[in-house]
Amino acid sequence: MRSIYRLLLFISLLSSGVAYGQISEDPEERREQGQSPLKSQTPEGNPLPFKDRLRFGGGISALQFNPFSIGVSPVVAYQASEHLVLGVGVGYTYSNYKNYFGGNLNQYSGRAFAMYEIIPSILPNLYAHVELDQRSYSTTDQLTVNGRTTGSATATWVGATYSQPIGRLFAANLSFLYNLNYANNADNYLLFGNQPYTIRISFF
């Protein structure tokens, strides 16, 4: 009888270990079966922990040499579901216009965005993209009385992003966005350019 109890105890421990292994299975293991790795849950449908859904990245923007300009835009995104990504980002761009008006241009930005995979069964990795982008700038020059000019503007971007996966939670993103708030004035021109649309490449 004692040997039967031991056998039952061994079987129960073994089955518990197998069950735990299934619950904690890495979604990346689906690649071995020719399937895409899951982004927000295990293959058994259990939600992944918060930290396992975070995506970090960003991009370098506005790089040019005459006049010199460079910008950085780090991003933190959260894989809310298999098809929904939410994120926030900040940005800074420095431009040197000393040869033009004797000064520099500093741009600052903060944004929040949402991306939803529209029809994954037909066009996988194509996302509808909505974003609120608040920007401000300051210039130092020799043309104004106090040598400094400031301004700000807000963009509401709508459009599409194609996201090419590089691993389970990292991708190269190509975005085509249109600014619904664009106005033909100096602030918008300095902060968003002379057109109401933008093409952006980012990684997260």
Rank of each mutant, 00 (worst) to 15 (best):
I4G: 06
Y5W: 12
L13V: 13
S15T: 15
Y20H: 13
Q22K: 12
S24A: 11
R30W: 08
E32N: 14
Q35H: 13
S36L: 07
P37M: 00
S40P: 02
T42E: 01
E44D: 11
G45Y: 04
G45W: 04
P47E: 11
R53I: 01
R53Y: 00
R55C: 06
F56S: 00
F56A: 01
G59I: 02
S61T: 09
A62K: 08
L63P: 00
Q64N: 08
F68M: 08
I70N: 03
G71K: 06
P74L: 07
V75F: 13
V75S: 11
V76L: 14
E82N: 11
E82Q: 14
H83N: 15
H83C: 08
V88M: 14
G89C: 07
G89Q: 10
Y92D: 05
Y94N: 12
S95H: 05
Y97P: 08
N99D: 15
N99C: 04
F101H: 11
G103L: 08
S109M: 07
R111Y: 15
F113W: 12
Y116R: 07
Y116M: 10
P120D: 07
I122K: 11
I122T: 14
P124D: 06
L126I: 04
L126T: 02
L126N: 02
Y127Q: 01
V130F: 08
L132R: 10
L132N: 09
Q134I: 14
S138R: 11
T139E: 08
T139V: 03
Q142W: 10
Q142C: 09
L143G: 09
L143Y: 12
N146W: 06
T149F: 11
T150V: 13
G151M: 10
S152D: 14
T156R: 09
G159E: 01
A160I: 14
T161D: 01
Q164I: 10
P165E: 04
P165F: 03
G167H: 05
L169N: 14
A172R: 10
N173K: 10
S175I: 00
Y178N: 02
N179I: 06
N181P: 02
Y182D: 03
N184H: 11
N185V: 08
Y189M: 06
L191A: 00
F192M: 07
G193I: 05
R200A: 13
S202W: 09
